[in-house]
Write a protein that binds this DNA or RNA. Structure first.
Lengths: 65, 65
DNA sequence: TGAAGATGTAAAATATATATGACATAATGA
DNA sequence: TCATTATGTCATATATATTTTACATCTTCA
C-alpha cells in the first residue's frame, strides 16, 4: 500500500502528533505510524475513528481511485 | 456493529448475489454475509473493493455519523 | 413434488491487524 | 551541549479478520 499523505497532512493541520492521535483513538502510536507509512491495511472501524478525530470523511482520507 | 443495509441495497440494485459479489472481490461468501450482517469489522482494502464493485464510495456505504 | 439458488449460521484453522517493548535518529529548545 | 519530543523501525505476542467446511431454511421454478 502507498503512504497515506492525506492523513499525515490532516493530522499536521491540527498540529497533532502521532502519539496524540493514537491516544485519542486508543490505539498504539506504532499503528498510526504504520498506517501513515502504508504498511497496514487498517480496519474500517479504525479508519472511521481516525476520520472523526481529524475532522475528515472516509472518502477524504482513505478513498483510492 | 449494526447491519449494513446500504451495502445490501446497493448489491440488490445490481441484482447481485452475495456469492457473485464475493467471487468478484475474491473473498468468501461468508465474509460478505458477515459484513452485511454487521458481525465483522472489515479492512479498508476490502471495503474499497466492495465499493468499487458496487459502484459506490466509502462514504456512501461505510460512513457512520 | 423436488431440485437448485440464496441466505443465515457455526466450528475450527489460518492470515493478518494491532499491541508491547525497545532502540535509533533528527529536530527543537533550554 | 544536553534533554526532550516526534518519528521511523523491528521482533515478539495477542486479538481478530477471513477461510473452509458444513448444515439449515426459504423461495422459486421445472
Amino acid at each position: 500500500m502507498a503512504k497515506n499523505l492525506r492523513m499525515k497532512a490532516a493530522r499536521a493541520a491540527l498540529d497533532m502528533s502521532q502519539q496524540e492521535l493514537a491516544d485519542k483513538i486508543e490505539v498504539s502510536r506504532q499503528t498510526i505510524n504504520a498506517i501513515e507509512k502504508g504498511d497496514y491495511n487498517p480496519t474500517i472501524k479504525l479508519c472511521i475513528a481516525i476520520c472523526k478525530t481529524l475532522g475528515k470523511t472516509l472518502d477524504e482520507l482513505f478513498w483510492e481511485e
